[in-house]
Amino acid sequence: MKILVTVKLVPDTTADKRIDPATKQLVRSGVETVLNPFDEYAIEAGLQLKEKIGGDTTVTIVTMAPESGKEIVRKALAMGADDAIMISDPKAEGSDVWGTAYALAQAIKKNGFDLVLCGTQSTDSITGELPGALAEFLGVPGITHARKLEVEGTTVRAERETDNGYAKVTADLPLLVSVTKSMNTPRYPALKGIMGAKKKTIAIASLADSGVDKPVGHEGARTELIDLVSPPTRGKGEVFQAADAVAGATKIIEFLRERKLV
C-alpha cells in the first residue's frame, strides 16, 4: 500500500513575523523554517498505519518547497517515513491553494498512491482548503478533519470531527484523509531514525518533471492578495476607581451588561 503524506515548510510558529508592504509577502529572512506542526499528525497517522498493515506498505512525504528546505523534510524521514518527493522550482513561488494543490496532485498521480494524508491546515496561511482541493484534483473522495482512521483491505473507516460531535464515514481506497490533532501524538525523531534518514531518498523534481502542465506560482495564481492589514491595536483599558468592593463589583457588572457580556 502506498501512503503519501503532504507536508508544508512554514516559518517558525513562535518567531516574530513581519510583512513586506511592497510585496505583501512574509519576510522570511531571519525566520527559521520548520515542518508545519499540523502535518506531523498526518505523518504519525501514516507511520502507525504502516506499522499496523505491514507488508510492502510505504510512507512517502510530498512537498513543494525550495531545495533549501531539504533538511526540514529529513525530519519527516527521521520520524520513519521511507522517502520523499520534493517539487522545487522557482516558478512555483507564489503559488496559491489552487496552484499548490494542482502541482501536488500531478506529482502524487505520477508517483501512484492508495492513500493521501494531509494535516488540516498550515500555521502560516491557515486556509484549511488544500486537502479538499487536492482530493478534487486527484479525483478521489476526501475525508477531512478525521480524528480516527482505520484501514481494512481497501475499506477506510474514519470519524470526522464536526462542530457538534463526530460523523462515522466509510470510503474505499484510493482516498485522501486530512488528520486532526486529536488523532495521535506525533513521535519524536529517534536517534536511529535521524541517522537512518541520511540514507533515504529525497527526489527533487522541477514542475515540468512532476507532470505540472499548467502555470502555477505567481503566474497561475487565481487568488489575488488585495490588501494586508495588521490587527487593530488594542485600545487603552478603562480604569475604574471604586470606593469599596461592592461599588467596584457593581461597576464591573454594569460594564459587562452594557456590552452584553453577561
Partner: peptide, 18 residues
C-alpha cells in the same frame, strides 16, 4: 565516520523538543 554535522544538529533539535 557514520555521523555528520546535520545529524548532530537534528539530535540536538530532538533533545530540545523532548
Amino acid at each position: 565516520a557514520e555521523h555528520d554535522v546535520e545529524t548532530f544538529a537534528s539530535i540536538i533539535d530532538t533533545a530540545y523538543d523532548v
